[in-house]
Design a protein around this nucleic acid. Structure first.
Lengths: 138, 138
DNA sequence: ATTATTTTGCAACAATGTTGCATTTATGTA
DNA sequence: TACATAAATGCAACATTGTTGCAAAATAAT
């Protein structure tokens, strides 16, 4: 078991359960983003669909993971670099979605460029979604 | 009826039908983005749900409208500035989604900043999704 | 005006997400 | 460790969203 699992759950005052351990482990191992369907498949019917929904919801609320914007209507989740406190307004991200294989990368080390908006618009968060071909699919 | 409707449909070799005229008119009038649900409500059960889905699909394929990425799982559509030929790889956009009222703006005049990606990633499109408070909700 | 093509509406289905509640599991305390 | 309390899970049922096939209707072409 990944060393950060218990730590993360405890820090966020979450009961330590099988589903939470397993799902958190998935995120920690494969660094890319995961959709609900991915988790459902990989866990092999070990957990109820509802449990997975609720676990993801909880993780988002606690700031352990965040959702990634996408143009198709599939919600994907990725680990927050360091758990964002309160789960609100976490750091800005650059995400990369591969057109070929569909893998979504969370590029934490890429700087989010500043955007100059028209007067009257207050910015709370900037998400940059880049699509194209990823490293593996060249 | 908006003068650009017939023009746009003809240019894209689409049959001129009531649903297409009405839906295109919605996009031309209210310049913000529209979700499927918005269209369904505004058209007041005039058209079948399936027809709306298919119309939006067709418009996207023809490059008349494009989808806007969002972190929740609601797909929104907005007019392309000038119909993008082939519907693929239209110009990059900055989109603004208001946390208060949910209105999505397509900020065509804001320049998309260039993003420096790691070596090996080929970029085909950059979407910038800014969220915060809009002009009206201050 | 008539034929050929396209689009629509309906029905049925599939996928995705939500809610309430009883049962099970985890936590805190003696 | 055993017990009481609190929390999470699984099930069932439901709601929403999106898809597909096909006959009927509308549009376009001749």
């Amino acid at each position: 078991m990944h060393p950060r699992i218990l730590d993360t759950l405890k820090r966020n005052q979450l009961s330590i359960t099988d589903s939470r351990k397993k799902i958190l482990e998935m995120f920690l191992q494969r660094k890319g983003a995961l959709a609900h369907a991915d988790i459902e498949q990989q866990s092999g019917e070990e957990f109820d669909r509802v449990t997975i929904y609720r676990t993801l919801q909880t993780f988002v609320e606690k700031g352990i993971i965040h959702t990634i914007p996408s143009a198709d209507n599939s919600v994907r989740y990725a680990l927050c670099k360091d758990d964002c406190s309160e789960g609100h307004h976490h750091d800005n991200h650059v995400h990369f979605m591969c057109d070929q294989c569909g893998t979504t990368y969370c590029l934490d080390h890429v700087t989010v460029p500043s955007v100059a908006l028209p007067v009257g618009f207050l910015v709370s968060q900037v998400d940059v979604v880049v699509s194209g071909t990823c490293l593996k699919c060249q």
